[in-house]
Write a protein that binds this DNA or RNA. Structure first.
Lengths: 129, 129
DNA sequence: CCGTATCCGATGAGATACTG
DNA sequence: CAGTATCTCATCGGATACGG
């Protein structure tokens, strides 16, 4: 199932795969996407709930981020034509699947953040000196 | 014990952790960082090798990306004062550790890209219609 | 309540030219 | 070969105002 046309890569990662990682990361690596996905990971939520749960996000960016998630099939948008209007957002199966590797990365970030911070301080001290 | 339904965060992820994911993703979610990390994952390489291995990166961006990796303690920079000069870059243990969750995300991207593309086509068709 | 439209500053990133 | 400096353009994201 896995074609290994390139003998170079250590364990089956072709260079197309590298581009794939890069693209998905550029896609979800913006300021708000993963935060929204993680909040939605706790269950469906409406617009204003999301906005409150994520502190500091502007209305514009929340809308934009949610539209992108919808477009990519990671979340669904359900409109209840009541007055006042109510809109629910919910992760799709695809969105929930994404949460797995994202949380793995989160775990890594949480564990290694002190090391990164220390490295930065060392580097900046060197440069300044 | 954990319930599967609505209530709280599934397994002990506080909101600080969410921010941590977000920050690390914003850090490595730029256009070139993961590509460079993945190439370095195959072993040490010098500047021009990296540049060739990654097609399309400008000299400026490669330098910038490598400096950030160095600053964050993810890669080392070794200068050989020969003529012409030679500079080797290599992943640190921290950098290699990062490769694990990044590759997991890459695996997800590779597996689900067709689904994302299909969702996008559906969405765009709707909007246009 | 849930958006869209617009303006604007900050950052990202390519092209090019120059140095040790 | 490896890197810096500068210019330029595109995109990101916040603030604000308005509409259904």
């Amino acid at each position: 199932m896995l074609t290994l046309s390139h003998p170079r890569a250590p364990d089956g990662h072709g260079s197309e795969d590298c581009r794939a990682v890069s693209e998905i990361l550029s896609r979800i690596g913006d300021k708000w996407t993963v935060l929204v996905v993680q909040v939605l990971g706790r269950g469906p939520a409406r617009f204003s709930e999301l906005r409150r749960a994520i502190g500091g996000i502007s209305q514009k960016m929340l809308t934009t981020t949610l539209r992108q998630l919808e477009r990519d099939g990671l979340a669904t948008r359900t409109v209840y034509p009541t007055i006042p209007p109510r809109v629910d957002y919910e992760l799709t199966d695809l969105g929930r699947a994404l949460l797995v590797p994202v949380n793995a990365l989160g775990e890594w970030a949480r564990e290694n953040r002190p090391r990164i911070d220390a490295a930065r301080r060392r580097f900046d001290a060197q440069v300044e000196g």
